[in-house]
Design a protein around this nucleic acid. Sequence first.
DNA 1: ACCCGGGCAGGACAAATGTCACTGGCGGAA
DNA 2: TTCCGCCAGTGACATTTGTCCTGCCCGGGT
Lengths: 204, 204
Amino acid sequence: MSSAIKVLLAEDQGMMRGALSLLLNLEDDIEVVAQVAAGDEIVAAALAARPDVALLDIELPGRSGLDAAAELRERLPECKVLILTTFGRPGYLRRAMEAGARGFLVKDGPVEDLAAAIRRVLDGHRVIDPALAAAALSTGPSPLTPREQDVLNAAADGATVADIAARVHLSESTVRNHLSSAIGKTGTRNRTEAVRTARHNGWL
Amino acid sequence: MSSAIKVLLAEDQGMMRGALSLLLNLEDDIEVVAQVAAGDEIVAAALAARPDVALLDIELPGRSGLDAAAELRERLPECKVLILTTFGRPGYLRRAMEAGARGFLVKDGPVEDLAAAIRRVLDGHRVIDPALAAAALSTGPSPLTPREQDVLNAAADGATVADIAARVHLSESTVRNHLSSAIGKTGTRNRTEAVRTARHNGWL
DNA sequence: ACCCGGGCAGGACAAATGTCACTGGCGGAA
DNA sequence: TTCCGCCAGTGACATTTGTCCTGCCCGGGT
């Protein structure tokens, strides 16, 4: 093989990262040329290593993999992005596509899928679980406005209205209104349930 | 090698399970003789395959790995249990030790640790991250009574007092009392925070 | 025998939460 | 321009939540 496929691997869990890296290197047409554990290291590492494919987790410390994917499209368009995530949330898939990702894998499927997906993506194909795609389409895009997302995020760990207001720099009244609106849009009964379903749909 | 170390692997995430399995099988003194994805399949698989070491995740569908570990000690005492978990919660470590586990690994560390830990555990040693052990000791055991844990669990997804009362078969008054008590013991301000810190400490 | 912790339950009360109506500013689309 | 959605804020209101106090039952330990 004159030129192996160069892969960048972004994954925070050490054991997972190490195992995937070893595994991919066993394939004789794939070479892991960079590994990072944090989202804010992705772009710099990619610019240095010039991978053909970037294999990105979404939930990473420092910066979301989706975020990094969007910047990669600008700065290194020849690098194809393949998202590899624990959760097949409809909103994640939608945002991944909007960020220019070429494929979307969940960490459930068999490992064999991984190398195959990398090759298919490099060939210009898209790799998406059909069931997941259907779910994403049926769920529709997020109904939450940016502020509502902010407030829900701030409310996620049990903060009081006063806490949230301080964190987001809003009046308590406004926070209450945004929370109420988010509860309404998610069809739930309180902020905790609202956070739950928003998370479940990948809206946060 | 006349007799390789026989390992049972319990892990719900398909990609992780596959990768670890392949990886361990690369070691010429280790053989993965059984793989399960659910907690309630562990004991049956172990009785059938008679592994030397059981590598168990904690958070599994069907049944907790800690639970299964306790039963394994009864039914297959010659099989050493090694816990492999995402979260190094103090309470998890404590419960793992009480369930008779011989080792406790978090999925962060390097993959190389894994095979080494398996060999050490088989040799009769215990494998525990010293920092984690210190945290477990300093945090102390769970202050929550069984009922308080039930109620917190039922409250975790945003259920109202009425919902919880119905789920746990208690009066609303009693639920409020248990919640208030749990909030006090965790040093928090509301049920959401109480659930958070109880989870964080591995008390649920 | 006693006390004590856990469990269960009810009532009363203050505080936090969720809802609603209404105001106004802003920017984009028709 | 007018309309509409998002944003920000206020005030009033009903509901929920959290706290505290009371009482009772039980089982284990001293």
